Amino acid sequence: MDQENVSATLTLDVPTEKVFAVLADPRTHPAIDGTGWVQEPVDRATLREVGQIFRMDMYHPDAQDGDYQVANKVHVLDPPRAIGWLTGYDPKGDGHLEFGGWFWRYDLVPSGPSGTEVTLTYDWSAVPQSIREYLRFPPFGPEHLTNSLHHLAQLPHRRPEADPSAVRNCWGR
């Protein structure tokens, strides 16, 4: 793949402010993801400022023991228009975070009286060659971003088993 980012766009029948609120709540990220890799947020606070760190428990069968944790750093926060984060980790377990050069970003544009056009971008253009030697980019197929946006669109209609109030409260219902 010559390109170093992938994007997908979907129009949701939900007001922009509510979509942003869901994206700013780490508790909803496992439901949005859809791969089963994103498990549970370690840091459950709403994303409110650039530089904020939020950790997520993850699972991938190719990871040592399958389970691991990422530390995400908010690098874009423009309510209700854009939110994004860099993905990193704590390699020595000493609190010193390293970021690999890839990020996730959601851009939101109002569409009609109560809709939102959402563009999800995954960008790995800043990943150094040393990381590219052992990680493949992107680590998922091209359909993943579109599927993720469809999951985001369905959140007002789902009742997750673990914490049903988390998703419903984000939508204000």
Rank of each mutant, 00 (worst) to 15 (best):
P15D: 12
A45L: 13
H144T: 03
L108E: 00
T11G: 10
H144L: 05
E49C: 08
E98N: 14
D78K: 01
P15M: 12
T28N: 15
P128R: 03
A166Y: 07
A162P: 03
H150W: 08
D123W: 07
H29Y: 10
L47G: 04
M1S: 15
A126F: 15
L23I: 10
G115F: 00
E161F: 09
D2Y: 15
D163S: 08
E17A: 12
V14S: 15
T28G: 13
S125F: 05
P128S: 06
R136E: 15
V74S: 00
D33Y: 12
V109P: 07
P138Y: 12
T16G: 14
T46I: 13
G51C: 05
L97E: 07
Q39Y: 11
V76K: 11
G93P: 13
G101Q: 01
H60L: 05
L86Y: 05
L155F: 09
T28D: 13
P61C: 08
G36S: 11
G36T: 03
P30L: 06
G93V: 06
Y122T: 00
Y134R: 00
M58Q: 07
R173P: 10
F103N: 11
D78Y: 04
N72V: 03
Q64Y: 14
P41Y: 04
I32N: 13
S125Q: 02
Q39D: 12
D78V: 14
L145D: 15
M56P: 05
S165P: 12
L120D: 03
H75V: 09
K18L: 13
F54T: 03
I131H: 05
P30G: 04
T121I: 04
E49Q: 06
G66I: 02
S130R: 01
M58S: 02
M56L: 15
Y134G: 06
T46P: 12
D123F: 01
V76P: 07
L155N: 00
A24K: 07
P15R: 09
G36F: 02
A45D: 14
H60Q: 05
N5A: 15
Q69R: 12
A63M: 12
Q52P: 09
L97Y: 13
N5G: 05
G66M: 02
